[in-house]
Computed example of a mutant assay.
Amino acid sequence: MTVPASRVRRRPAVPGRTLALVLALALLAPLGLIFVQAERDFADDHDLVSRERLGVRYLRALGPLTDAVVEAQAIAVAEGAVSRASLAAAVEGVAEVDNAVGDELRTHERWAGLRAKLEALPDRGIGDPEAAFRAYSEASDLLLALYRKVRESSGLIRDPRSDSFFLQDGIGGDLPTATVLAGRLVDLARLSAKRPAAERARIGAELAELRVSALGPANGLVADLRSAVDSSESTDLGANVLTPLDTYQRSLETFALYSAPGAGRSAPSTDQLTRAGISAQNSAKQLRTVILDQLDALLRERLDALERDRLLGRIAAAAAAALIAGIVALHVAALRRDRSRATPARREPAEAGPAPAVHPNPPLPAPGADRQPVAVGHGGDADRWRPFDAAR
Rank of each mutant, 00 (worst) to 15 (best):
A197N: 04
A24D: 04
A390D: 10
P363S: 08
E206L: 07
G216E: 13
E79F: 03
S83L: 10
R314D: 03
V186Q: 11
A320I: 00
D338L: 06
L323P: 00
G380V: 07
A131T: 08
T179Y: 09
G277L: 11
F42D: 12
A319T: 05
L188V: 01
S251V: 01
A320C: 01
V22H: 02
V229P: 04
L142W: 03
P268K: 03
L87A: 05
S192K: 01
R7P: 15
R226A: 03
A90T: 13
R195L: 14
G80N: 08
W111L: 11
P12C: 02
L273I: 05
T274D: 13
G125M: 07
A120I: 09
P30W: 06
G113M: 05
G55M: 04
G204Q: 03
S86C: 00
D370Y: 11
D103A: 12
L23E: 10
F388D: 11
T2H: 12
G63C: 00
D47Y: 09
Y147G: 02
A81R: 13
T2A: 12
D381C: 12
R84T: 15
P367N: 04
S232F: 09
A218W: 05
S279I: 08
R40C: 01
L292E: 14
Y258R: 10
R336L: 14
P365I: 08
P129V: 07
D187Q: 08
A325M: 05
R195D: 09
E253C: 00
A318K: 00
R161A: 14
P365W: 11
G368W: 06
G379S: 15
P363D: 11
L27D: 02
L25K: 01
A201P: 02
H359L: 14
E307M: 01
E79G: 04
A276N: 07
F388P: 00
I278F: 07
V94T: 06
D309G: 13
D236S: 14
R10V: 09
S192I: 02
A189R: 05
L225M: 10
A305I: 01
A193D: 06
D383Q: 15
A145E: 08
A333Q: 06
G80L: 08
E79I: 05
A391M: 11
T343Y: 07
Y58H: 13
A317P: 00
G80Y: 06
R7L: 11
E138C: 00
Q272R: 15
A90V: 12
T274Q: 13
A223V: 12
L21S: 03
R195Q: 14
V101K: 04
I75A: 08
R200K: 14
L114R: 10
V358P: 01
V91I: 13
G220F: 01
V69A: 14
A26S: 13
P387M: 09
P122C: 08
R314S: 02
G125I: 08
G173D: 10
T177R: 15
R302M: 02
A350I: 06
A178N: 02
L242W: 01
I324R: 00
